[in-house]
Design a protein around this nucleic acid. Sequence first.
DNA 1: TTATTTTTTGACACCGGTATCATAAAATAA
DNA 2: TTATTTTATGATACCGGTGTCAAAAAATAA
Lengths: 352, 352
Amino acid sequence: MKVTINDVAKHAGVSMKTVSRVINKEPSVRKKTYDIVMQAVKELNYQPNTAARNLAGTSSFAIGLVYDNPNAYYIIDMQNGVLSRCKEEGYELVIHPCSAGDPDMQQEIATMIQRSRLAGLVLTPPLSEQKHIIKMLDDLGISYVRLLSGQNTPSEENESKESIKNNNCIYVDDYAAAYEITEHLIKLGHKTIAFACGDAEHKSTTERLSGYKQALKDHNLSYNDSLVYEGTYSFESGVEGAKSLLKNNNESGITAILGGNDEIAAGALFASRLMNIAIPEQLSISGFEDSPFSRQTWPKLTTAHQANSVISEHAARLLFSKTRGSRSHDKDIITTFTPSVVIRESTGPAPK
Amino acid sequence: MKVTINDVAKHAGVSMKTVSRVINKEPSVRKKTYDIVMQAVKELNYQPNTAARNLAGTSSFAIGLVYDNPNAYYIIDMQNGVLSRCKEEGYELVIHPCSAGDPDMQQEIATMIQRSRLAGLVLTPPLSEQKHIIKMLDDLGISYVRLLSGQNTPSEENESKESIKNNNCIYVDDYAAAYEITEHLIKLGHKTIAFACGDAEHKSTTERLSGYKQALKDHNLSYNDSLVYEGTYSFESGVEGAKSLLKNNNESGITAILGGNDEIAAGALFASRLMNIAIPEQLSISGFEDSPFSRQTWPKLTTAHQANSVISEHAARLLFSKTRGSRSHDKDIITTFTPSVVIRESTGPAPK
DNA sequence: TTATTTTTTGACACCGGTATCATAAAATAA
DNA sequence: TTATTTTATGATACCGGTGTCAAAAAATAA
């Protein structure tokens, strides 16, 4: 019934260690031997037992994906990207949702690592941005890859002496994307552009805000605190944000709202409906992320496309390249992604 | 650094087998011994190594969740529900997205089971409804739990002689829910109610359709094929469905559309906007599932609430109850869930 | 050809638990 | 109290691989 490495060895007429070498693609196995073994593997349909490998080996064949993010689309994309890489490498994925609020989250993560003997971890924001988590992982001596908002400029991480290494990060350049999308609005003639931010604890929030500010500056538009609504990355926050920004019959004269993400934008859209404001005729609204969401609102959202599953796949690549010998070529790993603007129907020329 | 069962045994002054008994809650351990061991476990912060347990034991400490469903909200809920139970029981979860189209999906699932020595599987629709999958699992002799649309009536599964057992299913009574939601519309005075269906391969589609039909019948409304649009469980299908149903300036005189799920309903909403139809004044639209989605449309969707994470948690319970001794009390397991109507703003009295 | 180096292969001890079955201790019966 | 039954505990052989290191084979040098 179940085929073990010994069966394969016998079938191929070699020792089990040789089979082990073959399935692990270790060097110094003669081509001929390799072929014979692979043949046997195929004929018997051998599947190495993960538990045994994990137990015997120094590093296990499983990595973890830790997230604290309520955005289902985002999470699914992350999972799928990492998963596809895992499959490629014959690894298992242990998913671990958690909530930052939880006081024993750290303990929980540590427990998970120990129990499953994880070879590494992929961390998504905002967890990836929390120093105490990083510190814990460093102390544990486990390798990990962080998904981060920002650019890959070492100087920026000025965490002084004990500087957190930045060769294990995948960056999403939210700054550039926000700049681009703001510029898009400016080019449409908008002069009073508001920004409905996401959670302050996400670095992406400040990155996107900076890009927005810089774009305004570069186009000689003045920045105004009152045009920034500090909320969270949620639909509800988008609703509240829009209401707040457009209060008193839009006394600020806002003609465009940049949403911190698609959900915020959708919320703003919703609020606009409540207030009887026509989109995009009276008000332009743009999102961020290009989740399926953005195609299901009315009107469809202009947004910045972020290829989450690709990003997470590269995160996994990076992790594997550090974990085992660099089986996957480091050269193929992209470490900085810049979302690109996707123009749909929620933005249009500024009203007269 | 890492604590093994032997360390605990030494610390507690017992044999490692006794420790094993304690952590597995096996009977016949004296209370006193139990306490001593638990004390040691705590003091050393011992975490049993999953790989070792999987390898040594007859059944492993991991279950799998297999799904082929593009609905992110649904999947996340499923995962979280199962995961919470796994945590409780000290199991790992291996997630496995797959696509029914894939010809070697069966092989893939078999491989996964073998590699990870899974103790069991939770199957979500539509996979849970595919006979060849079930057959394969039966042949493999692996235990599994199916999430199914329907009621727990043995007679219904008339798969003849080799009758598939139905003591390993969790049912969602879509029939009853559809009946209820249709009745809601009827009571609002609607007489021409259309139904935009989901995928034919989902049993939920036929269940919901039956409920809809029965409600019409019980209220002396005639059923009409032309009022049923056969689509898929997607936003786009909702758009197309509504367009098709309301064609020629709504020649059929439809006053309400029942969406097969929330996405379809959202799509129908979208289409209505395109056609300048006011919701709910001119047309009522209802969804199904109560995903976060349904609260983020304009107007918010009347729908049938389905507690996916609770459902999947019970699926996991059921699986565990079959896998190991019934540590969790079977009595606590709910095997049939009936979604309940949630009334929001997308439905209203039928227009004159 | 033989000696030497390098490459390929294999024997065997683990990894950290669980399963089995024998043994010791406690409970009950005589 | 002693014999008998029941219950709690321990000794030890695995589970299916990987890591180490030594032996065998092949390649190269002498």
